[in-house]
């Protein structure tokens, strides 16, 4: 597998910094698991993170912070985990789920349009969540595009990260095969076409709903504009 398309340095650094929403971070992690070069950059960025951490100004903690921590040292963590066996997921989806997706409950393929199936993984959100300011949280979807099928032409209202898991697709910016990472700018308009032999399975984190062109595609907008 030769990977041609990689995330930008800014994206890799932000990912290593923990400065990415869950959907985007998951797509980057999937790419990095397949790409030694980006894995190396992430390790480098983590070392930078350690340096920056040590150099940060200390924040004021609650007066009893240390005594509270000392009091909890014996406690057993409640992070017991039970992921669904991968064999079960494989038989439902027809391919091996990347490790970074195994923590999510992944349902079954749903029909979206002729030749296009998808699985919703995370919903889009703009809530503040744990933060004190709202934060754009991308949606996360798996897509399966049948051989030779074109996605209806569309424009992105926000940034979008795609990682190809199997097969390949082509658009105006090039050919994207297994492991390739596409970082789509806000203003790109494209019409990806799945490879005519293999089709394409990919995972996509999208910040905003897609806007489709053409009368038929616009009729599908309520369905397709995930």
């Amino acid at each position: 597998m030769t990977i041609v398309h990689h995330p930008s340095e800014a994206t890799l650094i932000a990912h290593a910094a923990g400065n990415m929403d869950a959907a985007s971070a998951t797509v980057i992690a999937i790419h990095a698991d397949m790409c030694p070069r980006c894995r190396g950059d992430l390790v480098l960025a983590e070392v930078i993170g350690g340096q920056l951490l040590a150099g940060l100004a200390p924040a004021a903690l609650a007066p009893d912070a240390l005594s509270r921590a000392l009091g909890r040292l014996g406690a057993v963590p409640d992070d017991t985990t039970a992921a669904e066996p991968n064999s079960q997921v494989r038989s439902r989806l027809g391919f091996d789920l990347p490790a970074a997706l195994r923590g999510y409950g992944i349902g079954r393929w749903r029909w979206l349009a002729p030749g296009i199936r998808f699985v919703p993984v995370l919903r889009r959100s703009s809530r503040a969540g744990l933060d004190d300011r709202p934060r754009a949280q991308s949606a996360l979807h798996l897509f399966k595009i049948a051989p030779g099928t074109a996605m209806p032409g569309h424009r992105h209202g926000g940034s979008e990260f795609t990682c190809v898991l199997a097969g390949s697709y082509d658009d105006a910016t090039g050919r994207f095969a297994a492991g390739d990472f596409a970082e789509t700018a806000e203003d790109l308009e494209h019409r990806p076409v799945a490879d005519s032999r293999t089709g394409c399975i990919c995972v996509i984190a999208s910040e905003a709903k897609l806007r489709f062109r053409g009368p038929i595609a616009r009729l599908l907008q309520p369905v397709l504009g995930f």
């Binding site: 923990g18 869950a22 993170g49 350690g50 951490l53 992921a83 409950g105 995370l122 744990l130």
Partner: peptide, 30 residues
């Protein structure tokens, strides 16, 4: 510092994930 940084970052990532509305799961999996 690097090790502690990665622990902190991963904990935030986990917390963020837990706070997100996820799709209904096929079963109950943590």
């Amino acid at each position: 510092s690097t090790w502690i940084f990665t622990i902190a970052r991963n904990l935030r990532f986990d917390a963020q994930r837990r706070s997100r509305p996820t799709e209904p799961l096929p079963g109950e999996y943590d």
